[in-house]
Nucleic acid binder design. Structure first.
Lengths: 270, 270
DNA sequence: GACGCTGGTTTCATATTTTGAGAAGCTGGA
DNA sequence: TCCAGCTTCTCAAAATATGAAACCAGCGTC
């Protein structure tokens, strides 16, 4: 039982098990049979069976024609409701579209979730090559522009907390791999007002992001522009950053975080 | 205990309760406090509390700053994984975009889920008024074009099964409200190859849909075009239907359901 | 400033609920 | 036809979740 959260003292075995089943099915890219589920999770056949039947009744899982199990569409429904309650995505979308039109590169909208960033929207320019990111997916904080953008503007205690939980996995030879290096990068980010991922996550891919600050000046999300390094050149960064800042400013106003007059940059000189 | 499914005999109380909590939070458009959850669900405070804590640990729910609960982002992740396993949406999207460009009206992609249709994608033309449909939401079968399109091409036994489960709720004075009328409509749909919802769900809204058939010629989804009746006129229907048929044909090919030569219409004369 | 109220957190003995061994059914391949 | 692997079902045992009650904390009222 490592990884016990502060209030990890509450337990409902059945729920832990049920979610383990969902996790397993979610990880697997092919439907699994009862036996596979049972053995992977070290549950007894009959227990796994009962869980799967109940989950199926709730449509959290469903069976393929050959009797194997995969995640059910009910989860899709829940997921959309969950995201809707933030209503950030809907409000942000028009602004993101404009941003994509201006820059002609792919835009992402991401939130910080625990110690990872989760993408809640992606807009691609018409003529672009498909990016591999998946809406709903999560990526590490330390090697993504959105991650760094949010992290840099987090209050000290929360930031330390997040940094402590990072595993600093390496993806390219440029990936930041120590807390110290990340700290320095955060400082840099604060100074210039935007975060950059310079092929730190994927070779040949450069991204730039700015945080979206709420009414309390807390970063709640980040907007980024990503593209191949030969198009998103170092020289272009300041100009793209400007578009980004305008974009988040628009979103902030739509969300009621700021009134028309105030800017979005203020906080990082506080 | 009405509504017991065929195999409703399996029970895990904890799961039923947990999902009831998620349902409740999903329905509510504002975060709920512990007390509200407990009383709505007739759970005792301590039980509700324990559940919420466990759900929070799994990030299925999260707390707002004032301590109230709402659905968590983990569900968004699950939902996207669930939908991805079908990978229909991703493949269909470019085709839907083309369809929207051609028709300049809103396109939907929907699946049949139990006895309802669930929308898995929506594309709106740039200049259109926002439609109220929400991705992930579900609607009744009997009064939507997508519902009727799928239903009409279902094998007899499955169709009867679905029809039996419909409640024929009325939305406008044109809503089909008897099984017999629906049967007739299905017949008509099969003959002309596309389904129409002529203000049967919402006053002033006309929709037209065609089914997407898989390799076994089973309908797995439907694509629709919706718009205000004054734009989507009766005269335009055949032309729109043509665009729709071309669209699903493209999707079918992308999904590997049909090879380039074969059409999509064949089945309904079999 | 004390009081009572509403809402959240914690504890713990009890019994209800889940558990899992095992047996019985299927299905498909040899 | 028989076996092997996977799924479905049953039921007594016990581990698990339950909820009454106590405890806290904040807030509006008197």
């Amino acid at each position: 039982m490592r990884d016990s959260s502060p209030q990890g003292t509450y337990k409902v075995q059945a729920l832990d098990r049920a979610f383990a089943v969902l996790d397993l099915l979610g990880e697997s890219d092919t439907p699994l049979g009862l036996a596979q589920v049972a053995s992977s999770l070290q549950l007894h056949k009959s227990t796994a069976h009962r869980f799967l039947m109940v989950l199926e009744r709730h449509r959290m899982v469903e069976r393929t024609s050959n009797g194997k199990f995969r995640l059910g569409l009910r989860l899709f429904d829940y997921g959309n409701r969950a995201i809707e309650q933030y209503d950030l995505r809907d409000r942000a979308q028009p602004h993101l579209r404009r941003l994509v039109a201006e820059t002609e590169e792919t835009a992402h909208l991401a939130l910080l979730e625990a110690a990872r960033v989760i993408y809640i929207d992606k807009i691609e320019p018409a003529r672009s090559v498909r990016m591999i990111t998946r809406i709903g997916a999560s990526n590490p904080v330390h090697c993504t522009s959105v991650g760094k953008a949010i992290l840099a503007f987090l209050p000290e205690d929360r930031a330390t907390d997040v940094v402590r939980r990072l595993r600093f996995e390496r993806f390219t030879h440029r990936t930041i791999s120590t807390p110290e290096a990340l700290r320095a990068e955060m400082e840099k980010t604060r100074r210039r007002g935007y975060a950059v991922d310079d092929e730190e996550f994927e070779e040949g891919l450069r991204c730039i992001a700015v945080p979206l600050l709420d009414a309390q000046r807390q970063p709640v999300a980040a907007v980024s522009i990503s593209g191949p390094s030969f198009r998103v050149t170092a020289q272009k960064l300041p100009s793209i950053a400007n578009h980004l800042l305008q974009c988040v400013r628009g979103i902030s106003m739509d969300m009621g975080y700021i009134s028309a007059g105030r800017g979005n940059r203020a906080s990082w000189s506080a």
